[in-house]
Design a protein around this nucleic acid. Structure first.
Length: 472
RNA sequence: CGCGGGGUAGAGGAGAGGUACCUCGGGGGGCCCAUAACCCCCAGACGUCGGUUCGAUUCCGACCCCCGCAACCA
């Protein structure tokens, strides 16, 4: 029994929810549900990251003000989480009042620690877009949208965070907490990044250029750069700084993030915490990306898989199943509509769904009343070990081994024959099969909660259900 | 010598110093409770070249190829 605070990385609302968000949400939710099952008290945080130039620009394109635009996306992401049956305890928005004041207080703390200073900042500016560009947005030093125009270098004065000061502290953190970043290769990567030396980073923008951000305390000319603001949500979501009791109850946090976020979550944010005199996160888990047909999903390639379409067609638990079992938890994985369909058919329709049907048909036909609600048998150590190591597919494999074993048992012990030869023995066997099916359902609870409910219900009512996973 | 990952049966994945595992697909058989599902059996693979070793696909080195990232991309 412990308190377990878990957070996803807040999606930036510049685009619709995609499969990568779904992966992270579902992984986080599986951990949260499993922990609750183990008796832990759990706080699962999700939400939306809403500030910055990109958002202001998108809003303008759609003829809205940024807040209206963000409101719409917040609703979209919330519905998205609901469609995936994410059992979140908090949906934070970085435009929430509480978050805004928390970010400002956080800034003041860092400033008080002497870690915020003003300096010249060089930006690369495309006059065609009227926007600042990052190196990775440029192709051959030019804006891909306006290749005929020269990128202008503009200078402006910004606030900086003294990241460089924290190199040693971060390396010490990585030494002391050997699983601070999971998996190991990401830990190596961040170590080598920090070892190579850190450059202070800019944390503000001139307000006249960009008003859609959190005002810098005591300086009306600047707003916070969105990174700084967004990261603070991990503490503001649990009441910092106003509700210390709540904060201490939950902190430190276990974070889930994509591999593109490694530096921000495992290094920059940790330095910011130290600067603000807070303790480090508990752990940072880094997942991979999902490609389709061997390539990044992109609109121009036309290989984008919309998770909501999958939910519509196959159901929430089927999507959760595929994301947790057939997508690597840490490496990039490939998924196409065809492979998704194959996994669905092979393991849900033919596997679990069919097993439930064959067991429950026998039970409904031959048992006069439902079996007694089975005792809670504890999950195996292997199950928990795999889960604690974020190896979701390994946990799922364990469950599917039980499914296959039950299928084998039915074939070999032939309850459908036995019950005709010796009704009593046959009924005993069928009751055992139903009991095992019930346990399988429980094992699935963190991953496929609705399926677990149906299995439980069908057994306790002794009534064969509609096809769980219809053939599509 | 920028950083990290990877090249295993037709496909996608796991693995380990000594019979190479799983899923899908292919071939054959069985069963009839089940969603033409289920069970059993069979065929088929470790990028290249060296080294260490009694023995490497697994360790070491070189090479070839693929994929991310390369800082303020939120």
């Amino acid at each position: 029994m412990k308190n377990f605070y878990l957070t996803t990385t807040l999606p930036y609302v510049n685009a619709a929810p995609h499969l990568g968000h779904a992966l992270e949400f579902v992984q986080a939710d599986a951990l949260a549900r499993a922990a609750r099952l183990a008796g832990d008290e759990v706080f699962l945080n999700v939400g939306t990251d809403e500030h910055g130039a990109k958002i202001a620009q998108k809003a303008e394109e759609e003829g809205k003000n940024p807040q209206e635009y963000a409101d719409e996306y917040a609703v979209r992401f919330k519905e998205f989480a609901d469609r995936l049956a994410i059992s979140y305890d908090s949906f934070i928005r970085t435009s929430d009042d509480g978050h805004v004041s928390a970010a400002q207080e956080f800034w003041r703390r860092c400033e008080a620690a002497g870690d915020i200073y003003k300096a010249e900042y060089e930006i690369k500016y495309c006059v065609g877009c009227e926007l600042e560009k990052t190196d990775s947005e440029l192709a051959n030093g030019r804006c891909p949208l306006h290749p005929s125009l020269e990128i202008e270098i503009r200078k402006e004065e910004n606030y900086y965070f003294r990241f460089s000061k924290y190199q040693e502290a971060l390396l010490t953190l990585y030494e002391n907490q050997k699983n601070f970043v999971v998996p190991e290769e990401r830990m190596r990567e961040i170590k080598s990044f920090v070892s190579a030396g850190l450059k202070d980073f800019s944390i503000s923008r001139r307000r006249e250029k960009l008003s859609w951000g959190i005002p810098v305390p005591d300086d009306p000319d600047h707003v916070m750069y969105v990174w700084f603001d967004a990261l603070v949500n991990y503490v503001s979501a649990i009441g910092w700084p106003t509700d210390q009791q709540r904060f201490t109850k939950w902190w430190p946090v276990t974070q889930l993030a994509g591999k593109d976020n490694l530096r921000q979550q495992a290094a920059m944010w940790q330095a910011m915490l130290l600067s603000a005199n807070l303790t480090f996160s508990r752990q940072v888990f880094i997942h991979g990306f999902i490609t389709s047909g061997g390539q990044k999903m992109s609109k121009s390639l036309g290989n984008v898989i919309d998770p909501l379409d999958l939910v519509e067609r196959y159901g929430t638990d089927a999507v959760r199943y595929v994301l947790l079992r057939h997508v690597s938890s840490t490496e990039d994985s490939d998924l196409t509509p065809d492979t998704f369909h194959d996994h669905y058919t092979a393991h849900l329709t033919n596997g679990l769904g069919n097993l439930v049907a064959r067991v429950m048909k026998l039970a409904e036909t031959h048992l006069e009343e439902p079996i007694a609600r089975p005792e809670m048998s504890p999950f195996s150590q292997e199950y928990w070990d795999a889960l604690n190591a974020f190896e979701f597919n390994r946990v799922m494999d364990l469950v599917w081994q039980r499914i296959q074993a039950l299928d084998e048992r039915i074939t070999h012990e032939e309850p459908f024959k036995l019950v005709k030869e010796d009704a009593e023995k046959g009924r005993t066997l069928i009751a055992e099969l139903a009991t095992e099916l019930y346990q399988i359902g429980r094992l699935l609870n963190p991953f496929m909660p609705a399926t677990n409910e149906i299995i439980k219900k069908t057994i306790l009512e002794n009534k064969k259900p509609e096809n769980l996973f219809p053939r599509l």
